[in-house]
Design a protein around this nucleic acid. Structure first.
Lengths: 203, 203
DNA sequence: AAAAATTAATGAACACTGTTTAGTAAAAAT
DNA sequence: ATTTTTACTAAACAGTGTTCATTAATTTTT
């Protein structure tokens, strides 16, 4: 009964074709700029076909979010090899910001875009994101354990650092830094990262 | 020739009626959840009428953003009365976050929502926001002048603090704190604010 | 191998969106 | 009283997400 297996493979392949097309279009024109019809056209199928593979646009969105989460993990997790927790933490932060700057659409998808979040929590992408977040918190915990900070409130430290990094990236990619000349923005972000690292050192 | 004046008054009144209806609907259902037809229905006019007062939906958006900017200014500017720059800065930060938490839609409109930002810069709302931002930077400068910080890089200090506050608010209102139980979120935000203040003290 | 059943894909339809425009009725100016 | 200006409307256009009856192809059963 190899037919059912082949069918399943084909179904999976189709799903992936839709996702690939959606992801590409999405990168080019942003999430709202892409319609189901656009995606259908890209893969040379009718709009209705999309709905045989995804319940609605938001499910397609979640699938894309999963891809984004995987991309982010691949961007961040190499730092797991860094022995010293403080160095690991700093490099994690640097890479987090770097990910946001290099893949603004992906970052947007993960951390800014409005989505029915109550539905997402038992979704693969959320699990993936949660794992990366846990790794971050554990790194902070390792720093606390090694007395890199005076404070021992791991949760608040982690959250505070995250707030800064997220604020930095999201102000940048949602164009709320227009009071600074364009060529200075990245440098300012860089300086701010250095500053928060210094601030954290004396925590 | 009192007629032209009356006409002008009426035109202004109509504009305001549209804005009021839009703002109310927007608060209830969010920006994307409100259509031009919805607004038209609310004021009992045809959709086309809206376009006699606003070039397009984005101009209506900018007008709303202006209202939001004014609300924010009213929420923040009372701190101008605080003599000591450090106390003023801390209170400014507290109120900034408080504004975001209390008026998430307004905050969203000002700092998160995607909009054609290149067009906005010579708009009233941008000027208003810029003024508030300048006040913030000046307060930081006053702190620098009075040697509240070791660092003298006013621009980076201000930007770093802004990043933290914006990150805090936007993670909250875009529901990216779901890894923390709901009843703990506000307390965590509170603790993080206290922490960044402590961190800033030793800058 | 032929007929029946299952599956995949379609394309038209529905109710919505932002926006434009020809036409109309009322008000103002002549 | 007639012309001009103004304010507004209704219909239309091209787009959106989504559903569904129908069709075409494939697989299963006879």
């Amino acid at each position: 009964m190899g037919i059912t297996q082949r069918k399943e493979r084909e179904k999976e392949a189709m799903r992936q074709r839709i996702l690939d097309a959606a992801l590409q279009l999405f990168r080019e024109r942003g999430y709202d700029g892409v319609s189901i019809r656009n995606i259908a056209e890209a893969i040379e199928y009718s709009p209705g076909t999309i709905y045989l593979y995804f319940k609605d646009k938001s499910e397609l969105f979640f699938a894309l979010q999963f891809e984004a989460a995987a991309l982010k993990r691949d961007h961040l997790m190499p730092v797991a090899g860094i022995e010293d927790p403080w160095e690991r933490l700093v490099e994690f932060g640097r890479r987090y910001i770097d990910f946001g700057m290099k893949h603004p659409d992906m970052y947007d998808l993960l951390f800014i875009t409005r989505a029915p979040m109550e539905y997402i929590e038992n979704q693969e992408c959320w699990q993936l994101g949660l794992a990366t977040h846990s790794f971050f918190v554990e790194t902070v915990q390792a720093c606390v354990d090694k007395r890199y900070f005076r404070s021992t409130d791991t949760e608040t430290i982690a959250y505070t650092l995250w707030c800064h990094a997220h604020g930095l990236v999201s102000l940048f990619i949602r164009e709320r830094m227009r009071m600074y000349p364009e060529e200075k923005r990245e440098a300012l972000a860089q300086k701010s990262f250095t500053m928060i690292v210094k601030m954290a050192e004396s925590l």
